[in-house]
Simulated scan of single mutants.
Amino acid sequence: MGVAGSGKSTLAAALARALRATLIEGDDHHLPQSQHKMRSGVPLQDADREPWLGRLGDLLAAELGPAVLTCSALKRRYRERLRTAVPALRTVYIDIAPDASRARVAARPGHVFPAGLVTSQFDTLEVPTDEPHVLHLPAQQTPSDQVQAVLQWLAAPLNQRDAP
């Protein structure tokens, strides 16, 4: 989870390969009207995200094996909704500075999410502090190092996963 440009898709694809897991790309499941809003530079509201989060939770819950989901999950209640669908859900938060996020998003021509919406994501973001089973990773870490950190975290006993 994280704001646009944090590296969710890159990390998720590499992690799914390493875990031999199904990859669920959250952006692929936005409603057409939500995609249109984003392409037009209009920030999504909670009402726009509700059906999307429901769909993502259903997809995760339906998986019989391991799955990796990319999802901004900017608010705690969005993450709680996903945890309701999948109680064993583990979350990786990729932390990125606003300027770095804007630069990365601007470098993705043709993507559904324009750089002009980055500020609205930071305005909406509720950093997952004091939430269960969350790993914080810096966006500037290499994808390879991120994957290794996640694999080590997942391999640790559950009671050690939340340790600082």
Rank of each mutant, 00 (worst) to 15 (best):
A12K: 01
A12F: 00
L15H: 00
A16N: 06
R20F: 05
A21S: 08
T22M: 06
L23E: 03
H29M: 13
L31S: 15
P32Q: 09
G41Q: 13
G41Y: 13
P43Q: 10
L44T: 07
L44W: 02
L44M: 10
D46Y: 06
D46F: 07
A47G: 13
A47Y: 08
D48N: 06
W52F: 12
W52E: 02
E63L: 02
A67V: 00
A67S: 05
L69W: 01
L69H: 05
L69R: 00
T70A: 05
C71Q: 01
C71F: 03
C71E: 02
R76A: 07
Y78C: 02
L82W: 02
A85K: 01
P87Y: 09
P87I: 11
A88H: 14
R90I: 04
D99L: 14
A100C: 11
S101A: 15
R102E: 15
V105I: 15
V105G: 08
P109M: 11
H111K: 13
V112N: 11
F113Y: 13
P114N: 05
P114S: 02
G116K: 13
V118L: 10
T119S: 15
T119H: 15
S120M: 10
V127C: 07
T129W: 12
E131T: 06
H136E: 06
H136K: 10
L137P: 01
Q140D: 15
T142L: 04
T142C: 01
T142Y: 02
S144I: 09
D145Q: 12
A149E: 04
L151S: 09
L154W: 01
A155E: 12
